[in-house]
Amino acid sequence: MKKDIILAGVGGQGILTIAATLGLCAVEEGLYIKQSEVHGMSQRGGDVQSHVRLSDKPINSDLIPTGKADMIISVEPMESLRYLPMLNPEKGWLITNSKPFVNISDYPDINNIVAQIEQVKNHIILDAEQIAKDVGSPRAANIVILGAASPFLDLDYGLIEIALKKLFGKKGDDVVNLNLAALKAGYDFAMKNR
C-alpha cells in the first residue's frame, strides 16, 4: 500500500485536521507516514499545502515528486488546481470543495475554475459546506471532503471512523457524531458521483 496525497487550502482553513486524521489512521494501521506541513508566513491567508505520504514500506522523501501524487484533496476549488503539476495525470484523483474562499481582489470567475476542474480526468467536486450544514454544521466541511476522498484512500472506512473518534473524542459525543455523519455524507456523495 502506498498513497501520496496533497492537501490544499488557504491558511486558516484547517487542512491540518485532515492531515491529523490521516496520521492517526497510519498509526492505528501500523503504516509508515511522512507528513510535511506549512508553518509561517503563508499561514496568513496565503495558499498552503501539506504532503501526506502513507506506505507499508519505509518512506524517504518528505516531499512527493511532481507527477506522482495519487490524490489532491482540497478544501478550496482554485487551490485544488494550483497543485496539478504534482498529480499523476493518468491515475490521480482530484477531490475538491466547490465553495470558493475569496480573500483576494482578483479572484477568478468560479465557472472558469469549475470548468478546469472538470477537465481533470478523475475528479470529484462537491459543495462541502452545504453538505456539512445539512448534517449539522458547516464547520465539518473538512471532514465531508475527507469522506469524499475516502473511497480512494485504500484505507478501511472503519479505520477513518476510529481516527475521528480519537481526534474529536475530547470534545464530546455531539462533535464526534457530527464528524462521523459528515464523513458518511462525503463518502455517499463520492460513491454516487465517481
Binding site: 491558511g11 491567508g45 507527477g67 482554485m78 488546481l81 496539478l84 495525470p89 479572484y107 477568478p108 481533470v120
Partner: peptide, 20 residues
C-alpha cells in the same frame, strides 16, 4: 526519468499572505 503532472491552469491567481 522525470515525472510531471499538468501545468497550473492560467485561471489560477496568486494568493499571497496578507494581514488578517
Amino acid at each position: 526519468p522525470d515525472t510531471y503532472g499538468q501545468d497550473v491552469p492560467e485561471v489560477v491567481a496568486p494568493r499571497p499572505p496578507a494581514m488578517c
